[in-house]
Nucleic acid binder design. Structure first.
Length: 260
DNA sequence: TGTCCACGTCT
DNA sequence: AAGACGTGGAC
């Protein structure tokens, strides 16, 4: 297995955004951010997160607040059942865990609104426990890295990808590694036409090696209109200088090698 | 504008 | 374990 962690973490260290929930290791606050991020883009979440944490700085504060206060701070974010779950889960944490935020996978999964992804995200990011956190972006990155063919929405393929995610997870910085995989999927290893020329993992990528990067992961159907849009995107990838600035200088990777 | 798809959780 | 859910965004 190639070393993915070193180049990926180096890339992440250089390019990660300074976000409010990246300035804390409080599992409660990481949890709040993950729930908000499930349904809304980062830019939109920032303000809501700051107001929410100011109003409810601890899980006890959230548990003791009236639901209406919680919902009012959630107003505009949508998916209100998740705010209700957040509130109910906070009360469970206070009642059944004495206010100590759970740090085991099983205990986290038992809380309403925390599924496989969020449990892994909180555990790895806040607690440093090497647990996969495989969201849609990470699925795409891993499917390409290991040239996983087949429908990634199917349970079997999904399990295989999660197993690979665990295998490549470094023991020392699992949270940063998980976030880096997701960020890579959001910025570079995008659907359709990925930015392999500026990807820190291009040398390690099996799909790239086989020229399959645009066919993995498998897409259901591809209307003609989408093909046209992708052709348009292709033109934009070439010669975009600010994207070129994302490229990692690497002694092992020459331009000729990248183009070959 | 309406229609369809995306996405993590729940069942 | 495939589909529902809720809602924003793409087309």
């Amino acid at each position: 297995m190639r070393d993915l962690a070193r180049p990926l973490l180096a890339w992440f260290d250089r390019h990660k955004r300074d976000l409010p929930w990246r300035r804390t290791s409080d599992p409660y606050r990481i949890w709040v951010s993950e729930i908000m991020l499930q349904q809304t883009q980062v830019d939109r979440v920032i303000g809501y997160y700051e107001r929410f944490i100011e109003a409810f700085p601890t899980v006890e504060a959230l548990a003791n607040a009236p639901l209406d206060d919680v919902l009012r701070l959630w107003e505009g974010l949508g998916y209100y059942s998740r705010a209700r779950n957040l509130h109910a889960a906070a009360q469970t944490v206070v009642r059944e865990h004495g206010g100590a935020f759970p740090r085991s996978y099983e205990a986290l999964r038992a809380l309403p609104g925390i599924g496989e992804y969020t449990a892994g995200a909180v555990l790895s990011i806040a607690c440093g426990v090497p647990t996969p956190a495989v969201d849609a972006n990470a699925i795409r990155v891993l499917a390409r890295l290991f040239a996983i063919e087949g429908d990634a929405s199917k349970g079997q393929v999904r399990r295989r990808i999660t197993e690979l995610a665990l295998q490549v997870l470094p023991a020392d910085r699992p949270g940063d590694f998980n976030q880096a995989l997701m960020e890579l999927g959001a910025l570079i290893c995008i659907p359709g036409r990925p930015g392999c020329l500026i990807c820190p993992l291009t040398d390690a990528c099996e799909a790239r090696a086989r020229g399959l990067q645009e066919r993995i992961p498998e897409v259901k159907s591809r209307p003609l209109q989408q093909l046209a849009a992708r052709a348009h995107d292709e033109a934009r990838w070439v010669g975009v200088s600010e994207l070129a600035a994302l490229a990692m200088p690497s002694p092992h990777r020459t331009l000729a090698g990248m183009l070959g």
